[in-house]
Every structure is written in structure tokens, then in C-alpha cells.
Amino acid sequence: MTSLVLSCTLIGIGLYGVLTRRDLVAVLASIEVMLGGAQVLLASYAAGVSVPAVGEGITVVVLATGAAEAAIGLALLVALVRRNKTRTDQIEEVRG
């Protein structure tokens, strides 16, 4: 139960950051917080079920994904910095 509350809190904080921060670096950091929240939940789930290694496995995968995501995200960020766009409201290429 505690881990559930912790996980939700982490995801909530992360989401808040993703939605409100205008600085792309901060947005990336917030996404990492959300990922952390998810990992907490998975890890606690792994502790609670009899079948071993499922939760742990997924947690490791999420860790790897998070690392990859951070790497790609940072690479994209560098590219954007070169175009002098480090704030989310400057990016309008995805307009409908």
C-alpha cells in the first residue's frame, strides 16, 4: 500500500513537471521521475507475488528503457539547443 502511494505520488509529481515546466531539460527530468514511480510499483509488485523474476525482469527492462530514453532524449535536446530551441513553447512543428 505504501509503495502504491509512493508510486502514485512520484508519477503525479513527474506528470506535473512534464506538463508545467517550459524548460526541456526539466521536462526530461520529470519524465525520469515518472519512470521511477513506475519502477517502484513494479518492484513492490514483484515482492508480493509468488512467481519470481517477473516484476524484477520488467523493472530491469524499464531501467534499460529509461537509460535509452534519456540518451535519445538528451541527443534530441542537443539538436534542439543547436537550433536555439530549449523551451517547449518554441516547438510548433507538431501543430495539427
Partner: peptide
């Protein structure tokens, strides 16, 4: 119109 280009 809702697709305003703002990712957030």
C-alpha cells in the same frame, strides 16, 4: 483546432 503544436 485543438492540435495547436504545443507538446505539453
Amino acid at each position: 483546432g485543438t492540435m495547436n503544436g504545443d507538446g505539453q
